[in-house]
Design a protein around this nucleic acid. Structure first.
Lengths: 370, 370
DNA sequence: CTGTTAGCGCTTTCAT
DNA sequence: ATGAAAGCGCTAACAG
């Protein structure tokens, strides 16, 4: 299917270019702190202090250094800084996947909050494997990161120790929990699942199923919330109505899961889906089968991606604040690095049930707008 | 909407922890190359060579060093390596956005291809701003990256010079072009747009519109391809049928764009959409208005996201190989760094028109599976 | 408030 | 094939 067409061939020698550049009148030689110091007529350490701790030098020297910095176009060498101080400016971010939109949202929040500051995020991908998470943390440890952000609370004991040994602020994100490594921001996945299913019960649905792909720890907690809600209403859970797969979630898999569910329990009248991908896939499957949503089948998704508020019908979902969680995690780390008193080490970012047409069995359907 | 609940308050002193650790019997002190050398009874430089250039030392010393490395658990310090060699192990990746799924796919390919090797990707986000791209490249320059991957071919001249001055392999991705900075892998966006619209013409549609959100350079080229195809068939383009917005693309905006188009040109019988988000949004809008797809309206998307092959009807789209492009870009960089002869500096990753139900006006509709 | 002196852990260069 | 010496550019620790 993929075709590679060779259009042009010619080889470069990067090392040669580099050499050529260095020889050419030092033209491309990096400006060092000592150059700035010479220009400003101060010692190297004074120049350094003028930038890192302005209040420790006189305003006059500060200005001279600033002038030298901008006239020479000085930019510090991060490798030298890291080596000398045994601390890098890197904020490590450990996520389980990049192909899921929700992690993109989280990363956007992290990036935006870090923008303009001296710290740089570095993302790694565990692919949902705990052993890989440990390996990645060991690599991060050698970098002496300024801070760490990790998804979830299900790290192995080894991973927790690695994080603690980094002796830097650590924020766990996307969940809440009573025993965080250091700080935590996210939402209570189980409570959110419970509320989603409670909503279906309020709407009069009774034979409620659960569709789950991937079934990572957060999906497991949402499933626990599903059982909580049924128990709250004195409904006995039917194992046939819980259909899961270890495969990654996708729109396509949502349709398959619904088919499986209907084969096992044809009288199912509503489904709580692991996430919006699955929910939309389930909606499409209903359309294919001529099952009317919300009348014959109620559907609730999770995450409130943009797509569920524009589909026909719009899909009820639980909004989670992923972008904001990313920003908040960074703010917590920056505050800790600045030595500020951290008032909130454990933040519940909350969630919001967005009731829409896909569950509006009784009463007038909410409008198409979220 | 968002609630922050303070659950627990207590402050840590990371610096104190760090100090405590260092004092405790050197327990947590990093293993250095000199420790390995001492253990293996060789000089520091020999130990270094045993790892970086095994063929330069006797197999016997190589084995001794290897034993020392694993018994001590040595991991090199990247900051020291970067400082001494004036080269980091960082591969810089400059993308315009993280909230668009297609860049997530690209990053996945990059990450996967880099996995296990000594190089680390570092992602930055320009938010589609050329000035920000320049700033980010200046920051990368101080890191002496091992390689660079940048999206697109529309860098400013300043940005191109910054990239050249890094004297490292540079790969432009997602497009083709005759004047790349160094290497390039991607597809011909204009040709892809042309083929998409040619397909609509073949299916008998004549009043074909274009819906575009964001309108970044790649979207502009796809629009050029739209005009190409119309010209090929001797159809005069109608400016009223080209509806675009600078807003970011989303499912919701797709519906709005279609509404705008129908207000301006009610006799439109098909749309080529900038991307699949817009296409699906347009499909939903058709469903809301009772417009039958593909009979009254043909729809073609772009990128072939998972969702368009499971929707009802399934949506015709142009598959682009984003994950593979990311892998390929990394392979090109690694080959260049290894000093290999690069046979293909310009790779066309191609595209595939995936004809589906949303354009099956004549003949039997293709099945729901892609 | 400012300066001096030592490194950080590795690679480079030049010897042997 | 191996080694000794000299930094890379910055910051920490201590003096003044």
């Amino acid at each position: 299917m993929i075709t590679y067409i060779i259009v042009k061939c010619e080889n470069h020698d990067y090392a040669k270019n580099r050499r050529a550049m260095s020889n050419k009148n030092n033209k491309n030689k990096a400006v060092r702190l000592s150059d700035v110091a010479a220009e400003a007529n101060v010692s190297v350490i004074t120049a350094s202090r003028a930038m890192r701790a302005p209040e420790m030098v006189t305003p006059e020297t500060r200005a001279r250094v600033a002038a030298a910095v901008s006239s020479l176009g000085y930019v510090p060498n991060p490798a030298a800084q890291a080596l000398a101080s045994a601390r890098s400016r890197i904020i490590g971010v450990v996520i389980p996947s990049l192909t899921n939109q929700i992690f993109g949202d989280l990363l956007s929040g992290v990036m935006d909050a870090l923008e303009g500051g001296p710290y740089t995020p570095q993302f790694v991908n565990t692919r949902y494997r705990l052993s890989r998470e440990e390996d990645l943390l060991r690599i991060f440890a050698t970098q002496r990161p300024a801070g760490m952000i990790v998804v979830g609370i299900d790290q192995t004991e080894t991973a927790r120790n690695l994080l603690r040994d980094m002796a830097c602020p650590v924020v766990q994100v996307m969940e809440t929990g009573s025993d965080p490594i250091d700080m935590i921001v996210g939402c209570d996945q189980r409570a959110a699942g419970r509320e989603a299913v409670a909503h279906l019960l309020e709407q009069g649905y009774r034979n409620i199923g659960f569709l789950g792909a991937r079934m990572d720890p957060r999906a497991q907690r949402r499933l626990a919330g599903y059982h909580d809600a049924l128990a709250d209403h004195g409904i006995r859970a039917d194992a046939n109505r819980v259909v899961t797969t270890p495969q990654p979630s996708s729109f396509t898999i949502g349709g398959q899961l619904l088919s499986d569910l209907l084969a096992r329990a044809p009288d199912t009248d509503a489904v709580f889906c692991n996430n919006d991908d699955v929910a939309l896939g389930a909606l499409f499957e209903c359309q294919r089968r001529g099952i009317s949503v919300p009348h014959q089948m109620g559907i609730v998704g999770f995450n409130d991606l943009d797509v569920v508020s524009s589909s026909v019908p719009t899909i009820t979902s639980v909004r989670t604040h992923r972008y904001d969680t990313g920003r908040q995690a960074v703010r917590m780390i920056l505050a800790a690095l600045a030595g500020e008193e951290i008032s909130a080490r454990h933040i519940d970012a909350g969630f919001d049930l967005m009731a829409r047409q896909s569950t509006a069995r009784r009463g007038p359907a909410p409008g198409a707008t979220s």
